[in-house]
Amino acid sequence: MALLMGLVLAVFVVGLSLIIRVYVVVKAGSKCRPGTEGSVAVLAVAGSGGHTTEILRLMECLSAAYTPRHYVLADTDKMSEDKIHNFEGSKQHSDSQFIIHRIPRSREVQQSWSSSVISTLKALWYSVPLVFRLRPDVVLCNGPGTCVPLCAAGLLLGILGMKKVLIVYVESICRVHNLSMTGKILYTISDYFFVQWSSLKDKYPKSIFLGRIV
C-alpha cells in the first residue's frame, strides 16, 4: 500500500513538474525551427545492438527531404553514437543535418517492472521538453524502451493542438509470433504500425505487413 501511494505521488509530482516545464518551453518559444517548406523533420529512436542496426536501415531508405534528422538514444548506450556517425558520414550527399540527443533509459535489461516505472517517469521528464523544442514531423522507432516516453511526448504535442506528430513504429524482425513490450504499448497510439511477419498481422489487424523491410 505504501509503495502504491509512493508511486501515485511520484506520478503526480512528475506530471505537475512536466506541465511547468512545457509551459516554460512554449512561453519562451522554440529556438529550433526544424526543416523548411517541403522538408520533413524526423526523430529516430536508436537502441543498443540490433535496434540501432535496424533503425539505420530504415533511415537509409528515406529521401533527402527528411531533414533535419534527430537521433535520440539512451544515456547508457555506448555503441549507437559511433554507428550513427559512420552511417551519416557514408551517405553520398550528406548535408550533415543530423543531431544526436540523449535521454535517460526507460528500462535496463532485466530491470524490475516496479523500478522501471520510476525510470520511465525520469525519461519522460527529459523527453517532453526535447520533443516540444524539436517539434518533429515524424517519430520513427522500432522497439527500444526509450521510444515510449518520446512517443508519449509526441502524442501530447498533438493533444494540446500544437502540432500533429506522426508516430511510425516498425516491430523488430526478430518478433515472429508476439509483439515486444514496447510494441504492445505503442500499438494503440501509433499512426502506422508495421510488422514483418504475417503471423503478427493475423493477431494485430491494425498492423501493416509489407514483408521484410529491414
Rank of each mutant, 00 (worst) to 15 (best):
S115Y: 06
A46W: 03
T182E: 11
V139C: 07
W113D: 15
P34L: 12
S172L: 02
L210Y: 06
L179Q: 08
D202T: 07
S112P: 11
I84Y: 01
S112H: 06
K83D: 07
V14L: 08
L121D: 01
P129K: 08
M1H: 10
K163W: 03
F209A: 06
W125S: 15
V45T: 03
K163N: 12
L179I: 08
K163A: 10
I118M: 13
A153L: 05
F98C: 07
K184S: 14
P205M: 03
G145D: 04
S172K: 05
V117G: 06
H177R: 15
G49K: 03
I100V: 12
I173C: 05
K83A: 11
R69C: 04
L156Y: 08
Y71L: 02
R105V: 07
V128K: 07
K27S: 15
V117W: 07
K78T: 10
V26G: 10
I19R: 13
A153G: 11
N178A: 14
G145V: 02
E171C: 12
L62K: 13
R175P: 11
K206G: 10
M1D: 04
V117H: 05
L155T: 14
G35Y: 06
L140S: 00
T120G: 13
A44N: 02
G154S: 12
F194K: 01
L58P: 04
T53E: 01
T76K: 05
E171H: 09
Y71K: 02
S114E: 14
R175L: 11
I55V: 00
K164P: 09
Q110A: 15
K122E: 06
S127V: 08
T120S: 14
Y169A: 04
Y204E: 00
M1T: 08
K184D: 12
C174E: 13
Q97D: 12
S106Q: 14
R212E: 05
C174S: 12
D202P: 09
L157K: 03
H85T: 03
S96P: 04
E108R: 15
G35H: 07
G50M: 02
K91L: 13
A2L: 08
H93V: 06
V176D: 09
P136L: 00
V72K: 04
G183S: 13
I189H: 12
N178M: 15
T76W: 07
L73V: 03
H101Y: 11
H93K: 12
F87R: 02
D75M: 09
D95F: 07
F98Y: 14
R175S: 13
W113G: 12
V13F: 08
S48P: 07
R105Y: 02
H51E: 01
D95M: 08
I208N: 06
S30K: 08
I189V: 15
